[in-house]
Design a protein around this nucleic acid. Sequence first.
DNA 1: ATAATCCCTCTAGTAGCTATAGGTTCAAGG
DNA 2: CCTTGAACCTATAGCTACTAGAGGGATTAT
Lengths: 136, 136
Amino acid sequence: MFSIGELSKRTGVKIPTIRYYEHIGLMDAPERSEGNQRRYTKQGLKCLSFIRHSRELGFSLDDIKGLLELNQQPGSPCKNAHLIAIRHLTEVRVRLTKLRRLERELKRISACRADSIESCAVIETLADHSLCETDH
Amino acid sequence: MFSIGELSKRTGVKIPTIRYYEHIGLMDAPERSEGNQRRYTKQGLKCLSFIRHSRELGFSLDDIKGLLELNQQPGSPCKNAHLIAIRHLTEVRVRLTKLRRLERELKRISACRADSIESCAVIETLADHSLCETDH
DNA sequence: ATAATCCCTCTAGTAGCTATAGGTTCAAGG
DNA sequence: CCTTGAACCTATAGCTACTAGAGGGATTAT
């Protein structure tokens, strides 16, 4: 049996965040001590680790809810899990592409060597889209 | 003189968002018509375009506030604008690195060909960090 | 017994919007 | 001039995923 503080230490998830996950129904409410404090079992630890790890991989809480449910139906096909993962992968790739373009643009405008605002490439570029190298 | 709707069309920024920018002090409150409707000048259009473009490049509203202020002090050195841009570039690079790792990991786990939850790599990996290829 | 540390609930705040409700104004057509 | 429909107004609440604080009770070690 772990207290919420122990669970927090073991998973690296902050205490208010754990309570928040319970509040929104992502984690089951655990048993309580006589004095009304949360007492978690290994099950709770596993669940929270799963959530934490999924968050690190950037899954939304909604996606995680879906994955947790799939996980709790033994024998179910894992096609849905794949759908969620692949959709997420697609999103990540879109973001990657955007960020790469962004990096190029920022690198370019940061390289300006003017010393007053009137001729600063940073400001000029932000004010006028047509000075950009690429669309966005 | 533009109405808020026209401004919205010209910049691609939604109407409630424009009002929101005014509300938080990012844009100056424009003059009003007799019937209390907002009437913008070219100045307002320029300002909103600047904001929009900066947002597309991922600057926070706080950063944009700073950049706009710099822009309004002619003759000021543009060092600060560069600081903001370079700090942002650094953040973008950090995010890029993380996203690249993420993409590799997602690609790997999505490639699983099992057909039931028990042996699905997506679920297994999420449940057990030690199965990951890299740290995160 | 007491002090230190932990835990409880509840509310409000963060970023950057978006949506809704309920009402007013504008511009064009008859 | 009058009507109608689109566009506008304010104010409030909601979204994601938390985080921080207030004001109080529980647990644990000495």
